[in-house]
Simulated assay, not measured.
Amino acid sequence: MERAIETFLFASRWLMAPMYVGLVGALAILLYSFGMELWHFALSIPGMSVDDAVMGVLALIDLSLAANLLLIVIFSGYENFVSRMDTAQHEDRPDWQDEVDFSGLKLKLVASIVAISGIHLLKVFMDVDKYTDDKIRWMVIIHLVFVISGVLLAAMDWITNNAKVSKKKVLKDAG
C-alpha cells in the first residue's frame, strides 16, 4: 500500500507539466506585447524626444526581463519538479540550466523581480511629474522591500550552504 501511494505521489509531479506549457503561452503573449511595443515605438520616432526614446527602450527592456524570468521558471521549474530535459547535447543549451536548483531559482526570481521593479521605478523617475509624492514613496518602499527580501534570501541560502559544508567537514574529520 505504501509503495502504491509513493508511486502515485511521485507521478503527480506530471500535473505541473501543463502549467509550464501554459507559461510558454504566456511567453508568446509577452512576445506579442514586445512586438506591439516595438512597433508603436518605431512609429513615434519622427516626433520622439530623448525622454520618449529612453522610456520606449525601458519598456522594451522591461518586457524582455519578464520573458527571461518566464524562461528561468519554465526551464528550472520543469527540471526541478517534473523531469530532466534531455538536451545535454544541444549546442544552444544554456550553461545555467543544469546548475539552477530550487535555491538558485528563488534567487534568480528575486533578482529578476528587483530588476523589473528598478526599471519601473526608473520609468517613474523619468516622468516624475505624472505621479504623486505618495505614489512615488510607495513605489520606492516596495522596491526596497524586494531588494531587502533578495538580500535576506541570499543570506539564508549562504548560511544554509555553510552549515551543510561545516557538517560534512565535521563528519569527515570524525570518520
Rank of each mutant, 00 (worst) to 15 (best):
Y32R: 15
S33Q: 15
F34H: 09
F34T: 11
L38H: 07
L38S: 10
A42R: 07
G47K: 02
D51S: 13
D51K: 15
V54H: 02
V57N: 07
V57T: 13
L58Q: 04
S64F: 08
L69P: 02
I72M: 07
V73G: 05
F75G: 05
F75C: 09
S76L: 02
T87C: 01
A88S: 13
Q89V: 00
E91V: 01
D92L: 07
P94L: 03
V100S: 04
V100T: 12
D101S: 05
D101N: 11
G104Y: 02
G104L: 03
L105F: 01
K106R: 13
L107Q: 14
V114A: 06
G118A: 08
G118F: 00
I119P: 08
I119R: 09
H120K: 14
L122M: 10
K123N: 06
V124L: 12
V124W: 09
V124T: 15
F125L: 10
F125G: 13
V128M: 13
Y131C: 05
D133E: 13
W138H: 15
V140D: 04
I141S: 07
V147N: 09
V147L: 13
S149M: 10
L152S: 07
L152R: 12
L152K: 12
L153Q: 04
A154R: 11
M156V: 10
W158Y: 13
T160G: 09
T160V: 09
N161Q: 11
N162K: 14
N162L: 06
A163Y: 10
